[in-house]
């Protein structure tokens, strides 16, 4: 067991897979010699050399296009897009190309690749460097989408993503990079599509993702100690495939559903979960499901405003308490 930061876990997860399989290659801007702008890939260039860890020009389309071409012909590339907001300048590859080529070619073309990216707010970077874009990705048939919340999960899900035969969008949360956590020694490999109950509880189910997981956990502690409300917290981990069974099972026990989403409200992943629960577990519910989200706004830069925009521990406590009491 070792204590690692989330950012160290990124490098360890990639190294684990590169050491295992020589077909795993890694490309992106400033990822090699510089170790990444978030210092999440430090040491990989030294360990695996310039042929496997390649610095690219500032060409997001070339990065994802090249990853796709390499994947189609036998490599297993990991491509970094520095900030997930930059998906907007290379979205063709995400939405039109590697997501659809298998289907359009009637199964001939395979794209086993991973796009990893810094996602989410908290750094006071403003509207173009802070977004949570999981819902941009989740709606595209052909993609898988994961977002780890702990250093251990970074490694396990990275391994699952690299070994997966489909294109996987791997969302690292920028505000989690410095968070520490215990990581077992040796190889860690998860499966995609498994949510985890990170705090068992009886009164309500709170479903969260990435940075919202520690906030939901902190809120659950307060709800219990200050209000006697015992919440179960589920870390979704993988949006596609989505572990609806774990969520539906929890709701069947607690009879209440809350989602905590960093993405702006419209078409957030929580809406899909609420709709599934409404469809399939309506009569289990003792009250209306509640979505706690960032409002339908671009994110502001100022700390006081950004903090107001994202679901906070206080807001989660407030919304859950009010809903449970009404």
């Amino acid at each position: 067991m070792a204590e690692l930061t989330y950012r160290e876990a990124v490098a360890r997860g990639i190294a684990q897979e590169m050491a295992r399989d020589p077909d795993v290659v890694f490309l992106g801007e400033d990822i090699g010699k510089a170790g990444g702008v978030f210092k999440a890939t430090v040491g990989l260039y030294e360990q695996f050399g310039p042929l496997r860890v390649r610095d690219t020009p500032i060409s997001e389309q070339a990065i994802l296009g090249a990853a796709m071409g390499a994947a189609m012909t036998g490599l297993k590339p990991i491509a970094e897009i520095m900030f997930s907001d930059f998906f907007a300048v290379c979205f063709d590859y995400i939405a039109n190309e590697f997501a659809k080529s298998r289907y359009m070619s009637n199964g001939q073309v395979k794209c086993p690749l991973v796009v990893r990216t810094g996602n989410g707010a908290g750094s006071r970077f403003g509207a173009q460097h802070s977004q949570s874009v999981e819902n941009w990705c989740m709606m595209i048939p052909g993609l898988k989408v994961v977002a780890p919340s702990t250093p251990r999960d970074v490694i396990g899900l990275m391994a699952a993503a690299v070994r997966d035969p489909d294109p996987v969008i791997f969302l690292e949360h920028k505000s989690l990079y410095s968070v520490k956590g215990d990581v077992p020694d040796g190889e860690i490999v998860d499966r995609l599509g498994i949510a985890s109950i990170v705090r068992p509880g009886n009164d309500a189910t709170i479903v969260a993702l990435a940075l919202m997981v520690p906030r939901a956990l902190a809120a659950a502690d307060k709800l219990k100690s200050e209000h006697g409300i015992d919440c179960e917290v589920i870390d979704v981990r993988s949006l596609v495939p989505l572990d609806t069974r774990t969520i539906l099972g929890s709701v069947a026990r607690t009879h209440r559903l809350f989602t905590v989403e960093e993405n702006p409200r419209l078409c957030g992943w929580g809406a899909e979960i609420v709709s599934i629960v409404a469809d399939e577990a309506f009569y289990e519910l003792d009250g209306p499901p509640v979505r706690i989200t960032t409002p339908h706004i671009p994110l502001p830069a100022a700390d006081i405003l950004e903090d107001l925009a994202l679901p906070s521990v206080e807001r989660i406590v407030e919304r859950v308490k009010n809903a449970m009491e009404s």
Binding site: L51, Q61, A62, G65, A67, A70, L75, Y93, E97
Partner: peptide, 15 residues
């Protein structure tokens, strides 16, 4: 779209 993709296939050959 396919110009970068062709680059990737060529990268695989080079690698």
């Amino acid at each position: 779209a396919h110009l970068p993709i062709a680059c990737g296939a060529a990268w695989r050959a080079q690698y």
